[in-house]
Design a protein around this nucleic acid. Structure first.
Lengths: 216, 216
DNA sequence: CAGCACATCGCCCAGGCGGGTGAACGGGGC
DNA sequence: GCCCCGTTCACCCGCCTGGGCGATGTGCTG
């Protein structure tokens, strides 16, 4: 019994390419093609495909909205986002909408076929970078809580743009100790520089996003 | 030697009140009164007062223009804006024109006397809110506009937590060039580290406050 | 009590960063 | 034409940062 695939992409060239990619595999059958999100939802409703290959950037209804609509109605249908853009917001949006996979269009044909079969079986299929985004999103709040009280305190001062030396003075501890705290903070947040740690703190509001002092 | 004060206000009531306020202090002498800006300039030219208490809203010539004229001619004469309105444009205009102080008319008599003496000694006298306006409205936009297009571009990448090397790769220029831009940015913003530059950019929204990429 | 987490401090080292200076090039204004 | 500005690049120097490793004391917990 072949896996029934619905293709949703606004570029006919891409649809054609995908059909050729998948057509060679007897285990896969392309049962329909949609050129926008709304059409994808409509066709999915009629055809009950096993897997929908969903482009994210489409007219009328974007792929994420379409994914959410399909997943809400058709519990057996898995959606795999297949796009050319790799952005954290897109990845997270697609996953929240219920996509089981997030793949890039530069994928190899054989790899794509394998991924579709895996997705049909309910296995998650993510481009490595996509999983990194996901992990970050998930890990973020935990990363906050992983910080000790003292580390949060140091982070608060980092967010005010202070140097290690200044922080040491503020907290009445040695600069070396501050460095230790900063190292731990960066390790826990998974960042590579104090600036990134500050951005991290501000984005996720780990630290009271007070105005802080003007940089002197 | 008493401090010689010139009062410039178009309301006789205010002039009278000020004269009474100041008359009690032996260290202060009201040497003249003007009822509009032009008259204030004329009297200042004749009397060479130490301090001019300048209302901003006056007929014929407003207080800001009068302040500019006086400061241009009489280097020894300090001008203190004394007004009932607190607006950023008025504060900035007065300061640009050369006022050393910006006070509100609801000030206490004793406080006003103290402020006049301080102004005569060259000390800045600003209502707290006035200095806030100065910071926000004057310093910030000028700092922003002082940046060149390329520097703003670099700052945008700084805000994303990139290192100099990464920025160089992104912009296809040498790391040394990036360093030059970063130096200029920090100098113009008046900050001491890249982190502070980033905070500056975020606070004042110099840069599109996009989410930026996750630090890899 | 032994173990663990936390905070503290130290040292080493490499690489990044910040400051100074200089120089070349092109474009625009005087 | 000349000069200023923006952009590019380079070199030097010294401090700061980030990573690794170790050590001590304290307080909580099993």
């Amino acid at each position: 019994m072949a896996i029934r695939v619905l293709i949703a992409d606004d570029h006919s060239v891409v649809r054609e390419g995908l059909r050729r990619f998948l057509g060679r595999d007897p285990e896969l059958t392309v049962v329909g093609e949609a050129s926008d999100g709304a059409e994808a939802v409509e066709l999915a409703r009629q055809l009950h495909p096993d897997v929908v290959l969903m482009d994210l950037l489409m007219p009328v209804m974007d792929g994420i909205a379409a994914t959410a609509a399909i997943r809400k109605e058709l519990l057996e249908t898995e959606v795999v986002a297949l796009t050319s853009v790799l952005e954290s917001t897109a990845v997270i949006g697609a996953v929240r909408a219920g996509a089981i996979g997030y793949l890039l269009k530069d994928i190899q044909a054989s790899e794509l076929r394998r991924a579709i079969k895996a997705a049909a079986a309910g296995q998650v299929q993510l481009t490595p970078q996509a999983s990194a985004y996901l992990m970050r999103e998930v890990r973020t709040p935990e990363a906050i809580e992983a910080l000790t009280e003292r580390e949060r305190e140091v982070l608060r001062l980092l967010v005010q743009g202070h140097s290690n030396k200044e922080i040491g003075r503020d907290l009445q501890i040695a600069e070396d100790t501050v460095k230790t705290h900063v190292k731990h903070i960066m390790a826990k947040l998974g960042v590579q520089s104090r600036t990134q740690a500050v951005l991290y703190a501000m984005r996720f509001g780990l630290v009271s996003t007070q105005q802080g002092k003007q940089p002197k």
